[in-house]
């Protein structure tokens, strides 16, 4: 039953995309934060996908996906002159996170579309498998 592997393949993609969505959510949540948990400004995070081979026992190819790493964007944070802010530095500048809200929204849409695509693949595979199970009956 090589169709069964589709659930592994699409399932790995769905979980990777949901991890990407998770990262987007934390970036968007921190779009206006001044300091992260380490006291410095929050750095936008980004996931990198990697193909993981999911061959069937007889060697037929299949390719799932996994999150290889989560990297931090090292671009300098947004600086705003606001001497009254308690987080301002000696020159009166406050460093905000380097999250680009537009980038994150685009990322979010892309992740959710890929998620939907893979769910649909699994639904189709399920329908076909159910019909295969009824082979010879109707």
């Amino acid at each position: 039953m090589s169709m069964m592997k589709i659930f592994d393949i699409s399932g790995s993609a769905v979980s990777s995309q949901s991890q990407r969505l998770n990262v987007v959510a934390s970036n968007l949540a921190n779009v206006d934060t001044v300091a992260g948990p380490d006291g410095k400004a929050y750095k936008a995070r980004e996931v990198t996908f990697q193909t993981v081979l999911m061959n069937t026992p007889d060697g037929a190819p299949g390719a799932g996906v996994r999150v290889a790493q989560v990297t931090e964007n090292q671009a300098p944070g947004r600086k705003v002159h606001d001497p009254a802010n308690p987080s301002a530095d000696a020159d009166g500048y406050v460093t905000y996170s380097n999250v680009n809200a537009v980038d994150e929204m685009v990322n979010m849409i892309s992740a959710s579309r890929s998620y939907q695509n893979n769910i649909e693949v699994m639904n189709t595979a399920k329908t076909l498998l159910m019909k295969t199970l009824q082979m010879g009956q109707g």
Partner: peptide
């Protein structure tokens, strides 16, 4: 047909993987 279905599922799963 089942093999091809799995192949296309692999492609769709890796739509966002760099270098795939």
């Amino acid at each position: 047909r089942a093999e091809r279905q799995r192949l296309i599922a692999s492609n769709i799963a890796n739509a966002d993987t760099p270098g795939y």
